[in-house]
Nucleic acid binder design. Structure first.
Ligand SMILES: [Zn+2]
Ligand SMILES: [Zn+2]
Ligand SMILES: [Zn+2]
Ligand SMILES: [Zn+2]
Lengths: 150, 150
DNA sequence: CATTTAATGAAAATATATGTCAATTGATTT
DNA sequence: AAATCAATTGACATATATTTTCATTAAATG
């Protein structure tokens, strides 16, 4: 599921009653070309497409992101910047995020036990799990200076 | 930290160079009166205050929420509804969320190992951890009906 | 290739959140 | 208790992110 050819994507879509479109193929290709740790906002993705010479409307960008999250192909991250970021969902290579609520610095870390917990919990509740995110919010060492206060 | 009197809140605020105000006291009281599992958006909180006969501007509501998240008194949750929700941060009674991306049904569950992982990771990275959230996104049994497709 | 219906693009509309600034009020000091 | 000073508030304006609308285009199916 980490890499999906155009025809594999078409099958995934058609199996669920959706259509394969050039726009959807191009969006997924952008995400597959990112390196580990890169996240794109809707706006970032729109620009990345433009830079590739692909004009896709912002509406379609948003619609495609939602669809792919719904299908489990992308994960939607709410880090601290006020808009959502997206990345490929690779359950086998899962990683998590640590965010400074003051300066928004974001670190990634991996923790294999999380997906087990997710799987177990989802099963108990009758859910089909799409994504499993552990997010730690804190204050980084640069931002936390007790001596600077009062 | 689960319950905070007005004077205890005043001390928490003053110790960090912030002021105690009636608005901040009232906001915290609203959250302390919620039952486990209730979450409020900024708009919800604003309305809850109005219903209590307390007029507090929406700007102040937003500012107060941010301050209390920053202080570790509240946790900010990004569930699937498109706006943030807040609840009291009770590290000793921590719980996590399972959200259906289709109908937004949200279940809470507890998992004691999470806070350990959070503590360990934050320590390694030099962060002071404020909140530790495991969020599972999936499709609930009501929404997932493979037989209804194609 | 004709039919059907999902998907797209452009623009407008909504929702959410933040910034500005004069007036107010809390904390602290006389 | 009054004076001082800076943090906080409220009202309003503004910004940003996301969604909706709807006429047009184009996949899928047979
Ligand atoms: Zn990531
Ligand atoms: Zn920081
Ligand atoms: Zn909760
Ligand atoms: Zn559901």
């Amino acid at each position: 599921m980490t890499f999906l050819s155009d025809t594999a994507l078409k099958h995934e879509l058609n199996a669920r009653g959706f259509r394969s479109t050039p726009q959807r193929q191009k969006v997924l290709r952008i995400f597959m070309a990112l390196t580990q740790g890169e996240h794109l906002s809707a706006e970032n993705l729109h620009q990345a497409l433009e830079e590739d010479g692909e004009h896709i409307s912002l509406s379609t960008v948003y619609r495609t992101l939602h669809l792919m999250v719904y299908m489990g192909l992308l994960r939607e991250l709410e880090l601290a910047e006020g808009h959502k970021h997206y990345e490929l969902n690779r359950p086998m290579l899962d990683h998590h995020h640590l965010v400074c609520v003051h300066c928004n610095q974001t670190l990634e870390f991996s923790e294999s036990s999380i997906s087990e917990i997710g799987k177990k919990t989802a099963e108990t509740s009758g859910y089909q799990v799409l994504d499993c995110q552990l997010t730690l919010y804190g204050i980084c060492s640069k931002c936390y200076m007790p001596e600077a206060r009062t």
